[in-house]
Structure formats: structure tokens, C-alpha cells
Design a protein around this nucleic acid. Structure first.
Lengths: 350, 350
DNA sequence: TGGCTATCTGAAAGCGCTTTCAAAATAGTC
DNA sequence: GACTATTTTGAAAGCGCTTTCAGATAGCCA
């Protein structure tokens, strides 16, 4: 890093307030407020005058004053585990889209898969006065809901379903189970899982559970040495698959917690001379941009992130406006079949 | 999407305010404020009492009231072209990290590579009362700077250098030129470029210019048919390279605007039976997570996004606190050599 | 103990907007 | 033209916090 010396910069001037506009237009601030908020009952000529005055002065209402006065901040918060994760970014993006249309601002924060941190960030947002809050998953710090309740604002959870709380998501166990069943149908018998960290992460946990149960229902089992938990990312996927190979006879198929992990596993498999899908079928999660372009193209569980974001936005907006709303919105994930899955080779089956 | 009927939810209760705390602690709101803001000059026993009362009541200061009173919102805005773009997400993430430490909240918005939209989003943030603003690049709507100035808040631009305005970035032309020179040094003579959309995008434009100039300085030229502009993404890269092949003798090396584009170009090249790097050397931009894992591993220009975000954060914080600051911070990009670049085959050189 | 600082503390005045309430202006009626 | 029903309007009271200013307390020294 290199700092290039340059002119030193300085600040400020007083920006116009409602009284200035009122003066210029020859009315009271009450009327200015009425005009600017579109309330009815202002004579056309005064309305005109106010509009022009505001325009001339470049008046912009002070958000804090307005918020203080109306008791609404017109902002909603969102706390996601990892703001650099594609799926969360997509949700945030679509969530924001909706909020923006309704005049709300999105304030997002990062919790890094840690309950304490999540609580801290959420509290920070609450202090800011957000009018609503979006969270990811159904596992949170025990104090979190109390604090949210104390602020009396609506909250919605995303990505997973919840028994008690408002949520927009999908059945992680069921969709992962579907992937497992698909593999079993193809003829696979030894199926492994590489997931991200599962601590305090109901999505990851549910997926593995779903797979284990699906296998059990078909008379198979998820061997402990084929149930790997690693940190996210391509590197994690490589490590995970390496670990799996170290534990006895390799699986003929694996289901991964993200497409990045799947990508990593495929790389490691290839480095070990295994053919995908010949020797190893691979399924990812999320349907990332690159998934169709991998070689072979990656079979993956597509999560409709944009729809989740939209639905979560709609839910929160409705509640903030006092409209009734259903507690649970389910948006199903979808298994996208591509070239990384195939029946196992005969000799691998014994 | 499926809506499952559920209980209908409802709201509210009054949250405690400073006066409540004052009452409970037997002091005035002035003292409460002093304690909660850590101002000196409050006797220990009263301080204790206030702390406990606040704790018991679960008091959280109303952000709007505080903002109104202090004239500082403790929030800064950021408008980026595409919130789903890896490089921008990284910058936002590190930017936020710094802000958060200093007690500021980040409010981010999406402009989608459109000047009008950028103006709209920035105005929205300005209305919100942000205390500072981060933008990307040096090309903006003519009205934007006027509006920012009217609010009297500091602004910093990122990713590119600017002649007039505060900025944290790197010399896009120079770093792209370095990549071009490297290719020429390897022996390449026909070098192509696939960039993202260049309209209103000084980064993309500068990179191409830098490459063209570097080539010119070595007695070569960037042929128009080898100068391709496409929309971002892997698909864009494929299309771009296809277009390039349609335009006469193919280049022996290409420089791409992002790693995604490079990835797409590599896929297309392989689909055409070209070997990378044997028949085609490829250089990307950004050093994405997947770059080292592509086959072959991608040579790329690493942009130190995290440092840019940190520096931009530091810059804004300093100015918001009235401290002097240098106008321009340069953070150099770096050419990361991997396996996707090599000398051209002899027969390709004529 | 009295007198004089040095500390602490609370009353009160904003911050800039919205909104209520009653007065002023206008319109409508007979 | 007097009188009532409507609209329009502005004065003023908050919203909940910070901060100034002056008064109350405590601390010290003679």
C-alpha cells in the first residue's frame, strides 16, 4: 500500500431544513410536511410554492428527525452467517429489491457462523432502530428472541423451516434426502457426505440427517467415516474428500454441502486418478454460476435464493405494515441433474 | 412456492426510554446519558445505579433520537455496481469490518452499472442521513457530486484512481499493461482482450487502454477483432471467445476482465480443441477463490480487495472524525503467475 | 468552622420533523 | 347577507436523546 500525498480535504455547510422551505414558500412547517408527505388537504397554489421552494433549496428531509417523529426507521436489518457466500448474497440482493420498492433500506451484517457474534450484530442493528429483522436458520442465541421481542419488531427466519417462528425456507432434510434417493436409485450403495461446519447450523445438520434417514429407509447406512465435516470452500472440499479416502473403502457417490465443496472434492478425486462420474458421483448444493461449467457439469440441489429473499421481504413488509401474514412459507429446492452423477461401475458395487 | 397456513402474528409493547432508566436509578436523564456514553464526571455509585437500571430494563438507546441530537447518524453508505460480484463483496466486507470497529453501520446499495440508478440509490442513502459515502470508480452522474456536497459529507471512490476526487484504488491501466508485457515477454504477438461492459466503467476501459498502449510500446497492436466486450460471467466469457475466433486468426493469448470471463473463455477454448496454455494463454482479473483450482490453474491479476476496503474505511472514518487525510491511496494489484500462461507454440507465431 | 475550589448533577433547551387541535378562510344555504 | 358546514392552515406539543449552564455537593486549607 502506498499513500500518495495530496491536498488535504475539508468539510461542511448547513443544509436546508423544513423551516427554510416554509419561509421561502410563505407557509408553516406543518404545511411543508404535509406537502412533502403527500397528505391531502393542501391548496394547489401552496402545494406548488412548497414544491418549488424545496426544489430550489435542494431540501432533503432529515431522516433521523423523521424517524424520531414517526417511530419508524424505514430500515430493516439482516444478519447472515457469511456475507461472501453466494447463496446469502443472492438472498440479500432479492430481499433488498423488495424492501427498496417499499421504501425501506436494508442494513446487512455478518455473523460468521457464531451465535455470540450473531447476537452482537443483531443487537447492533436493533440499537440502530431497524423496523424488522431477517435471520438465517432456526438456531440462535437464547437471548436473541427476547431482545427482538423487547423492541417489538417483526423477525423472519430464512433457509430452513421452523416449528415456532416465522420463516421462509425449504426442508433441508427432505431435499438432501431426495438427492440421496436419486443416488440409491442409480445403484449406489456407499454414499458419503461432506458438509460445512454443522455446529449451530441447522441447515447443514438437517441435510446430513435427511441423507442418513433416506439411506436407512433403503436399508443402507451413512458410515461415520463417510460423514465428513469441514470448513467451507474449495480447499475444504479437497481436504474433506482426502479425509474420506483415508477411512477405508471409498464411497461411490458423495453429496456436498455447497458447490464449492463439491468442486474441491472433484479436484481431489481427479488428482487421485478417480473418474467423475465413473468412479465417483458428486452432488452439490446451491447451483452456483459455475456449476454447469465444471467438467463434468455438476449435479446440484438448486436453492431458489431469489424467491426466498422476495418472500422474506414480502413477509416483513406485510408485518411492518400491520397486515396479517402466514407464519411459514415453503419454497422447495430442486435437484438439477447434470453430468457429475451416474450409476456406479459394476466392480465398485461389492 | 407454497404458503402453509399458520397462526397469524401480532406485535408490540413500549420499550424503555432514558427517563425510565433515570427514574429507576434515581437520577436525571442527563446523568443517564453521561453514563451510557462513558463521559467522565459521574460519581461511581450513581454510575453503578444507572448501569444496573439500564440492565434491568433492557434499555437500548433510540438511534434516531441520538442521531437527531448529535447530528451524526453513525452510518455510512456504499453504492457498488453489482453486489453479487465477488470483488465488490470482498471490498464491502472489509469496509464494513473497519466501520463496525469504529461504531458505524454500513448501508450498501446496488447500482447495476447504470449512472442514473447509481444516482438514485446514492440519493436514497443521502436522504437516510449517512455520514459518509463510498462509490466505485471515477465515472458518475454529473449531479451526484453536487448532491453529496450539499449534504456536506465525505465521499471516497474505490477501485480506480482519480485525478480530482478522494480515492483508494489501483492503476487499472498499469496493472493490465503489466500483464500484457508479461505475455509479450513470453513471446506472444497476437494478444486479445475480453472485457465486461465498458460503458460508464472506467476500470474496464482503463484496462483495455493500458493493454493497447503496452502493446503499442512493444511494436504490437490490439486488433479490433481481438478486442471483445461482453456482459460479465462465465457465459459471457464463452461468448466472447467464440466471437474472437470468428474474427480471423486467433490470438495466442488473452487477458480477461474477470476470472469468470477467463474461465468461460477456457471452457470455450477447450470445447474447440485448443489447449490452454499450449495454444492459448489466459489471464484473468481478481484472483477469485476458484482461480488456483481451475485446470490449468489461472494466471490472474490479484486485486487486493480487502486492503481497498480497509483503506477506504479508514479514509472515511478519519474524515468523519475531522482528521486530515491523504486524497489518494494507491494499492497495487499483483500479477499472480500460474499454469494458464506459457510461451506460444512455435507454429502459432507467424 | 468558614471560605473557596473542584466535582457532580439536574433543569431545560434544543435537534428537525410529524401531527393534533383549534382558529381562519372558504364554500354552501336559505 | 347571516349563518353553518367544510376546507385549509399554523401554533405548538411532542418524539427521546445530548449538552449547556448554573446550582448543589464535596473537598481542602487556614
Amino acid at each position: 500500500m502506498l499513500d500518495v500525498p495530496g491536498e488535504i480535504l475539508e468539510p461542511l455547510a448547513r443544509s436546508p431544513v423544513a423551516r427554510d422551505v416554509a419561509h421561502r414558500a410563505g407557509v408553516s412547517t406543518a404545511t411543508v410536511s404535509r406537502v412533502l408527505n403527500g397528505s391531502a388537504g393542501v391548496r394547489a397554489d401552496k402545494r406548488e410554492a412548497v414544491m418549488r421552494a424545496a426544489q430550489d433549496l435542494g431540501f432533503v428531509a432529515n431522516g433521523a428527525a423523521r424517524a424520531l417523529s414517526t417511530r419508524r426507521f424505514m430500515a430493516v436489518g439482516a444478519v447472515v452467517p457469511n456475507i461472501e457466500n453466494e447463496a446469502f448474497v443472492r438472498v440479500l440482493s432479492s430481499f433488498q429489491e423488495r424492501l427498496r420498492q417499499a421504501g425501506y433500506t436494508l442494513v446487512a451484517a455478518n455473523a460468521g457462523y457464531d451465535l455470540e457474534d450473531e447476537l452482537r450484530e443483531a443487537t447492533f442493528l436493533l440499537e440502530r432502530g431497524v423496523d424488522g429483522l431477517m435471520l438465517v436458520g432456526d438456531i440462535h442465541h437464547p437471548d436473541l428472541h427476547t431482545r427482538i421481542a423487547r423492541h417489538g419488531i417483526p423477525m423472519v427466519q430464512t433457509f430452513s423451516l421452523s416449528r415456532e417462528r416465522p420463516c421462509v425456507g425449504f426442508d433441508n432434510a427432505a431435499s438432501a434426502a431426495r438427492a440421496a434417493n436419486y443416488l440409491v436409485d442409480l445403484g449406489h450403495r456407499r454414499i458419503g457426505v461432506i458438509s460445512g461446519l454443522r455446529k449451530d447450523n441447522d441447515r447443514g445438520g438437517a441435510r446430513v440427517t435427511g441423507i442418513a434417514q433416506a439411506l436407512a429407509a433403503r436399508g443402507l447406512r451413512l458410515a461415520p467415516e463417510h460423514d465428513i465435516e469441514i470448513s467451507y470452500g474449495i480447499g475444504g472440499g479437497r481436504d474433506g474428500f482426502r479425509q474420506m479416502l483415508a477411512g477405508g473403502p471409498p464411497p461411490t457417490a458423495i453429496i456436498c454441502g455447497t458447490d464449492q465443496i463439491a468442486f474441491g472434492a472433484m479436484i481431489e478425486a481427479r488428482a487421485r486418478g478417480l473418474d467423475v462420474p465413473g468412479d465417483l458421483s458428486v452432488i452439490g448444493h446451491n447451483d452456483s454460476d459455475f456449476a454447469p461449467f465444471l467438467d463434468p457439469a455438476l449435479t446440484t440441489i438448486r436453492i431458489h435464493s431469489a424467491e426466498i429473499g422476495h418472500a422474506a421481504g414480502d413477509h416483513l413488509i406485510a408485518r411492518m405494515q400491520g397486515r396479517p401474514v402466514v407464519r411459514l412459507t415453503q419454497i422447495d429446492a430442486e435437484l438439477i441433474l447434470r453430468a457429475s452423477t451416474a450409476p456406479p461401475r459394476k466392480q465398485a458395487l461389492d
